[in-house]
Amino acid sequence: MQLEKRSLMIPKENKIILRILGMIAIACGTAAFINIRENIYQIICWILLIITGFYAVSYYDFIDAAFTAKNAADFYNYNEKDISSKKIEFTEEEFRISDEEHRLMLPKKFINRICIEKKTVFIFTDCENFYYIPKRILSEKQLQIIKEFV
C-alpha cells in the first residue's frame, strides 16, 4: 500500500528530471574520467560524479522504494496491535467509514479523488490524506460499485 501510495504522490516530472540529471552526471563523469586524468584529485571528483549520477538515476526506483518498504514494515510491526478493522460503506451519495472512535460520512462532492491501483483502492479526502481499501477483500461486484462511485 505504501509503495503504491508513494508512486501516486510523487509527480512524474520529478522522476524524469532526476533521471535525466543522473544520466547527464554519469555521461559527463565517464567522459571526463576517460579524457581528463591529470591528478588523483580529478579522478576522485569524476568517480564521485558518476556515483552521484547512479544514485540519482536509481533513487526513485530502488533506494527510496526500499526505504519506503522498510519503513512501512517497521510501522506495521510496531503498530500491529493498534490497527483496527473499519466498516466501509458506499451508498449512492455517500462514502462512510467507521470504527470505534471515528466515523466519517462524506458526500460524493467531499471526496477529492479515488485512485484504483493494482492492489489498493485509495480514497482521498484532500490532496494528502486518504483512506485505503485492499483490493483482496473486495469482490468484483464491490469493485464495480466503487468504480461507478468514481
Binding site: 462524506l106 462532492k109 467531499f110 477529492n112 479526502t125 484532500d126 490532496c127 494528502e128 490524506n129
Partner: peptide, 13 residues
Amino acid sequence: LKGEHIYKSSRLL
C-alpha cells in the same frame, strides 16, 4: 504552503 494546499483541497477542514 502545503498546509494551505491541503486546506484548499479539503471540504471538510
